[in-house]
Design a protein around this nucleic acid. Structure first.
Lengths: 255, 255
DNA sequence: CGGACTGTTGATCAAGGTCAACCTCTGTGG
DNA sequence: CCACAGAGGTTGACCTTGATCAACAGTCCG
């Protein structure tokens, strides 16, 4: 069961992430801090949002990992995305009648339940933060489209390269990857359900990537040995980019 | 080449769609009509939005069909979605530095190019329309997640059932499907690129669906013979629902 | 020490891909 | 009016990727 704990986090990951995208005023930072409280705790397998829940809440993840997934009636499961610190997940959930996917912790996590009214208030107080939310959601959409291409048209090797590349780049965005190394607390079962493969094939394919000196693993510690070949496999033509808000957007919302 | 034509459409599909979701005031209807002008025309294979374009435009489709797709360097292609009348496609495109996918007409179409400033103005004039935009985007996200599950975990037969179900239900939303029948102007090549299959396998699988009396085709005219079995194949547990904005959302934005 | 969980490896199998021939429209030009 | 070309679709033969099944190994933890 999720436990509650109102002790505030010293520096929420969402702030680490957003300050890289946009220069925030002290007032905006305060607003975001308020959004990130109260902090709750949960353990692996705790369900943060249930599939089909109708309350329209979003969740903000501070520490630890979660997955967003859908389960089919015969036991098949698709993981839509890995949720990492700094992610605001399901921000438009309150627009739908019911959640179409569940969010489940896969490590110990700290998180905040964000109610619809909190998001609406945030937008009302600051149009710029509204733009930022919109931007976060656009990023999420881009990620989903990226996954879609991977599942539809890439081979097992390429799909795993995509996933590794994506996680690495997202973790860098919140300061959780140093010199090509990061923690990946997902089982191969989860990697399989995220890439549409079987566990066995994930195991074989990752071992091949390792034998080819593209990646290296020791327990949950992963290291990228050859970013170029990884990016090429992942069909990444352009570098992940600075990930700042386009000037156009800042301008439009400045007034 | 896309041609321009400022003659206004009598009743844009987007209005047909949105009036089913929400009661619109005369002023809001006028705002939406303004968004839907000027009307342009394009022919099959015309590119409405190029992959990588940096201008941040969205497009609003009035008549005809388009596809949103990504092309890989070796010729593989993934269709992310079919764009049908009433769709506002890429509304958050202007949040990204460049478009990650292209939009190409597959029939003769009429459409409107929606510039970032037009969307921002719309939101500024009416928060309710802002909510509506947000809702449209949430729907799009839900659709993408749905496709993701299909590509990741469903069989060929199930994937095609999903696609048929989805198109049927979206076309009903804009009054383009009457008594289980609708026009589907996509080649099997496109169906293959949307479902992550090969054309040959799409052909075989559709023929099997037809032999099983689930669907029926004559030229581009499709008919659903057995909605129940189709829905079951498509892993749809709940009916598509009334597709109205949740009361919660209307309340939040009323003030 | 034993059991649960995770990952590895081998053997076999099937879903779906690939290749190629052919067919059926439809539109076009002689 | 017919011949032909080209696009889209169908069918068969064969092949490949990745799934499935099963045994086993390493690790963690009580």
């Amino acid at each position: 069961m999720p436990k509650r704990n109102t002790r505030p986090t010293t520096n929420p990951a969402i702030l680490r992430r957003l300050t890289q995208c946009m220069d925030l005023s002290p007032g905006e930072i305060a607003d975001l801090r308020r959004l990130a409280a109260p902090v709750r705790q949960a353990s692996p397998l705790d369900i943060l949002v249930a599939e089909g829940s109708a309350d329209g809440n979003a969740i903000l993840l501070h520490e630890g990992w979660a997955i967003r997934h859908r389960n089919l009636r015969d036991g098949r499961r698709q993981i839509l995305e890995f949720v990492v610190p700094g992610d605001l997940c399901e921000p438009s959930n309150f627009m739908a009648a019911r959640a179409d996917s569940a969010i489940t912790a896969i490590t110990a996590v700290t998180w905040t339940l964000v109610q619809p009214v909190a998001l609406v208030d945030l937008v009302a107080r600051s149009p710029r933060l509204g733009a930022l939310l919109w931007w976060l959601e656009a990023q999420e959409g881009a990620m989903l489209r990226y996954h879609l291409v991977a599942l539809g048209r890439l081979t097992a090797r390429e799909r795993l390269a995509c996933l590794i590349w994506e996680l690495w780049s997202r973790l860098r965005g919140v300061g959780l990857a140093r010199d090509h190394t990061f923690e990946l607390p997902a089982t191969q079962d989860m990697l399989a359900d995220a890439t549409g493969l079987s566990t066995v094939h994930v195991s074989r394919t990752l071992n091949r990537l390792e034998r080819d000196d593209i990646i290296q693993r020791q327990r949950q510690r992963w290291r990228i040995l050859d970013p170029d070949r990884l990016a090429h496999l992942a069909q990444m033509e352009q570098a992940p980019g600075p990930r700042r808000l386009p000037r156009r957007v800042e301008d439009l919302f400045r007034r």
